[in-house]
Each structure stands twice: as structure tokens, then as C-alpha cells.
Amino acid sequence: MEVQKGKQHTTAKRMQEFAGVFFSRKLVIFGFIIIVAMILLALLVPVLSPYDPNLSSLKEVLRHPDISHWLGTDDLGRDVLTRILYGTRVSLLVGLASTLVAGVLGMALGLIAGYMEGIVDSVIMRIMDAMLAVPIVILALFLGSALGKGLGNIIFCIGISMIPRYARVTRGSVLSVKKLDYITAGRIYGASRFQIAVKHILKNCLSSNLVMMTMNLGDAILTEASLSYLAMGINPPTASWGGMVSNGYEWLSMNPCVAIAPGIFIVLTVWAFNVCGDALRDVLDPKLKGTL
């Protein structure tokens, strides 16, 4: 019982230290608030906004911001703010899901490559190199053209195009962790290859990947926006930030808000994720400073 208490105590202390370092810069607090706010808004839009995001109202086309439409309306008379908030759902969902896809697959490939070495390693890493040779947006665009549009496909495309970075980083850390004595100790004390790979190696690569995933969330959101901007992403009329900017561009001279407001949300969200990713790196893996 007492021992159990000691366990809790150390965990609590660790959490406290963690939070202390994480929030040591004021900007991080700001970024964290933005992320939380975005998530809350995305969840609560239907309650908060009286408008339907997709219902056009031809009487209210391209209205400038006023009391009833804080950010005005677009060419089909839809409330811009409402659409932006619905767009948050798409951005966050695509960002999180595609990062997860990339992280999990990339980590698995990196682990296999680094752990097996030899021919398996060469094959996996050459394929990763080949994927890296094609710029991310192009790769996602290309895969998207093969798979077709739609939420699921977009997540998959962006996820796949970001795999190589995770595979590389994971492989690198697997190779360096492998040399450490505690891996040798694992072998000596009877752990199987699989046990070592998962329990000792993967667990120790996890934090650097977690850091990278946070930092890449912003990238994924940017890529989704770019694809949607090029009309290769989310299908209209579903609201997405990139699509809204693209659509608003046509009416730029009549109501700049339609194109510019969604962009500000992109910048804020991506920035917030980047700043939190930096802070997370400082907490979890101070050694990574500069490499990511």
C-alpha cells in the first residue's frame, strides 16, 4: 500500500515537472489555449452558430461583416464564420488522423529497417528516399489523383506522403538505441528479439516520434488546406479552410474577408501546434533540439 503511494507520488511529481517545463514560455500557454479553443469550437459550432454552413441564401450574397454575420457572407450567402468553424472540424480531423497514419506506419517501417538492418533496411530506406524525392504536396496530389477525393482518401494520402520522415527518424534512433548497453542487457537476460524491439527500443523511440507528430500536425493541416485549395481535397460544399480561401479569391475585390479570414485561422492553428511541438520537444527530448 505504501509502495503504491510512492508510485503515485512520483507520477504526480513528474507530471508537475513536465507541466512546469512545458509551459515555461508564455507563447506556449497562448498556443495551448488556441488549440483547446479550436477543439471546443469545432465541437460546439452547431450550438454556437444559428446558421447552416451549407445552406445558400441568395439574398445575403457577399455581405460585409456586421452584427449578424461577424465575418460577412460568401458568394452563396453562407455565413463565413460558421463555415470557418465547421472547417475546423475538417482541418483537425485530417491533421490528427493523417499524422497518426504517418506516425504509426513510419515508426513501424523505421523500426523494422533499423532493427533488421541489411537488405530489408536497404529496400525500405531506398523506397523512403524515393518518396522523399517527390515534394510532399506533389506526392499527396499524385496519390489523391489515384485514389480520388473525399475525407478518408485525403487522410490516407497525406498520411502516406509523410511516412518517410518518421521512418527516417525512427530508424536513426533505433540504430543509436541498439548500441546501448541496456539492449545488450536485455539479450543477456533472456528477452526475445520481439520483446527487445517493442519493450526497449520502440518505447524509447516513442518520445521523439511523439514530438515529431505534434510538430507535423501543423504541416498536415497546411497540406490539407493546399490540396483543398487546389480543389483536390475535400469535396464542396463541405467547408474546408483551403477550399474557402480558393473560393474567396474570386470575390477578393468585393469581399476580402471571405478569402482572408479562413487563412488567419490556418496560421493560428498551425502556429499553435508548432509552438506546442517545440515545447514538447524541450520537455521530452532536449537532445533533439536542433535536429527537428
Partner: peptide, 25 residues
């Protein structure tokens, strides 16, 4: 550092439109 962080979060297509609006229009 602050500007770099914001710069990295800015999508190119949006920045382009902003430029078009301010510098051209």
C-alpha cells in the same frame, strides 16, 4: 524566431492572395 514561427505556419496560397489584395488591388 517569432517571425520564423509565424512564417512557417502561413500557407503560401493564402499569403499570395493577401499580397494580391494589398499590393495589387
Amino acid at each position: 524566431s517569432g517571425c520564423a514561427n509565424i512564417g512557417m505556419a502561413t500557407p503560401a496560397f493564402w499569403l499570395a492572395i493577401l499580397f494580391v489584395y494589398i499590393l495589387a488591388l
